[in-house]
Design a binder for these strands. Sequence first.
DNA 1: GTGGTCTAGACCACT
DNA 2: GTGGTCTAGACCACA
Lengths: 123, 123, 123, 123
Amino acid sequence: MSIDFSADKPIYQQLIDRITGEIIKGHVKPGDKLPSVREYAVEVGVNANTMQRVYKELETMGITETKRGQGTFVTEDSIRLEQLRDEVKKDLVQSFLTNIESLGFSKKEIIEHIQNGEWGEKG
Amino acid sequence: MSIDFSADKPIYQQLIDRITGEIIKGHVKPGDKLPSVREYAVEVGVNANTMQRVYKELETMGITETKRGQGTFVTEDSIRLEQLRDEVKKDLVQSFLTNIESLGFSKKEIIEHIQNGEWGEKG
Amino acid sequence: MSIDFSADKPIYQQLIDRITGEIIKGHVKPGDKLPSVREYAVEVGVNANTMQRVYKELETMGITETKRGQGTFVTEDSIRLEQLRDEVKKDLVQSFLTNIESLGFSKKEIIEHIQNGEWGEKG
Amino acid sequence: MSIDFSADKPIYQQLIDRITGEIIKGHVKPGDKLPSVREYAVEVGVNANTMQRVYKELETMGITETKRGQGTFVTEDSIRLEQLRDEVKKDLVQSFLTNIESLGFSKKEIIEHIQNGEWGEKG
DNA sequence: GTGGTCTAGACCACT
DNA sequence: GTGGTCTAGACCACA
């Protein structure tokens, strides 16, 4: 939930993932207004420049739209959001499988490990 | 199988993963001698210092042992190698699940995607 | 206090020992920021790569944490620092005793020599 | 007792320490004949060149004497052997104290640790 | 020949 | 500015 400043994953990427996650989960809906850059930066304790970059990338990805003078909003293009969801899922799985392979594990073994694991929702 | 010089993952990490993978797969066995630093560096087309770093890291991980003037050998401590396998698997899955969660996907949905995907054994 | 460029012990190891010592002595405290790699390198007169290696090793040992773009900090995990102190002390004494033994001295004789010696507090 | 091929201390140095130790302990006496280079090399499983170096350094140190055609003998100069004992002891303690200091421990604390330790002869 | 250390200098991503 | 990676090339100790 919180930002890990020592992680290998860049802070801005962690923030992109978090916001993307909120949208995927439906906690944030198409047309919703995001906090201002400064507000959000203060909230999570990062530099405003970092948050600026996050918003910029989100807009580049077509996830948000900026209305001058009004702020940043989640796009109302729900088809785009569906695309986003699929893209993200595909990338996630693809890079995971690449890792599995290069490290010498079989897909079967790993899936079993995930299913038997003691994490999260038991889904 | 080969090194991606433009990937986000550093070359030396790719090499560590590769060698670790070879050991996990059993292609390289306890007590086996690895190629010399310079030899291996030439083989994969990286600088000798980069390969040196890879070997050093492997030794720190307890995977290899160096006999001065003779070369670098995979440890004969097969218990350590079993540990290694488990650690690597656990880390792999753990970080994947963290990603899934922060991006708002359910474990169930992702596993289905992996199983139905067009990768790996069906690839 | 200063670096011996012609010692048998590598420069980077001397630097690790020095920083570790500063922490053990309490001159550097949990959460303190270390000088930047380049800054410190200039200060002691070594190459930046050498210092980079020192910092990397310290991080691997769990003594420091790096916040990207901000610098390197002593871990705030004071339990880890206590562990460190004990580990270092144990290793120090253990390797000394191994030496004593292989060279054929008794522990008693050596301790007497240390206590009567012209070093340290009496120096 | 045995040679550690993966240790940080060079094999030849380990062997010098061992032989020196045997003399200090009195297991090997002034005038005693040492095994031939080849014999000894086979016995401990090292390269003959390595053992050659060991014998050469011992002679340089004035500990042994070579009689052509007869072999290598521990010097009968018992004053030299006493000197040797003292030199070795002094070096040992000196380097230990240097380490203690650079790592931020007090002499007192370390001696207590040695005395309370669960090693060796309890001497 | 083998690993290990160090330098000099370049380039990159992140904040 | 901060840490991180990589190259090229030199030099060293060890077996």
